[in-house]
Design a protein around this nucleic acid. Structure first.
Lengths: 115, 115
DNA sequence: CCCTATAGGTAGTATCGCAAAGTATTGCGA
DNA sequence: TCGCAATACTTTGCGATACTACCTATAGGG
């Protein structure tokens, strides 16, 4: 599996984080694992990417957090706010449109096909 | 059609430009139109995005250009180099992997589905 | 004569994912 | 018991790059 160029994520990370949190509250570390396993290993994001992104989403009011202590370890569990649910819906639509457009353009092959 | 957030393109623009140039030489302005029409209007990129990107690709040796004059207007026609063809192949693979991963993660719905 | 479309260009800004480093705790193995 | 891995969170600073805004120039239609 080729290492994915970093910049590819730009602008799509928020949608992924919201999607991971949609089924229920998760703490940061678990989010990272969910992204890795849910993408078959393709998205193995460093903590320096995910934690600041979660802070950003919280500042934006799309997620909220509560501190817990489990087995002596402090955990911060994030969950979607109503605004976050709404944003996720929009982001899915945006992704559909974007990925459809890119896929269509990349699929264009030299042979004139139907011409 | 919602205006697409700028950062979404990050890292994917090069692949799109290479794909547009694959069938044959195009000048910058035509590339912009190809992106717009080929994406059903979803990708309407400003010249300040496309021209510098083309310069970048040329510096990187993935495309090359020749100047022409057509009807009194100076045009710079770009075409893929062998390295550009190879890069396009890799970029398509990267896009497939990336879009598959993102689509899978965004498709996850709360309902347990097969559980 | 101006305005639009065509065709190209640059400078500066802002965003944001990442690398790197740090703090703590638990628990395992040597 | 000492050290190390895994768990869990945080922050600073950097680099890459798409965009805004602006500029030049020609052809052609109103």
């Amino acid at each position: 599996m080729l290492p994915m160029r970093p910049e590819l994520l730009k602008g799509h990370l928020d949608a992924l984080l919201l999607a991971v949190l949609e089924p229920g509250p998760q703490h940061g570390y678990a989010v990272i694992e969910a992204l890795r396993t849910g993408s078959d290993g393709a998205l193995d994001l460093p903590t320096g990417t995910v934690y600041p992104a979660l802070h950003r989403l919280e500042r934006a009011g799309l997620i909220a957090s509560d501190w817990h202590t489990v087995g002596g370890r402090r955990r911060r569990a994030y969950h979607l706010t109503p605004a976050g649910h709404a944003a996720l819906g929009e982001q899915r639509a945006v992704w559909d449109q974007f990925s459809t457009a890119v896929t269509a353009l990349l699929a264009r092959r030299p042979w004139p096909s139907t011409a």
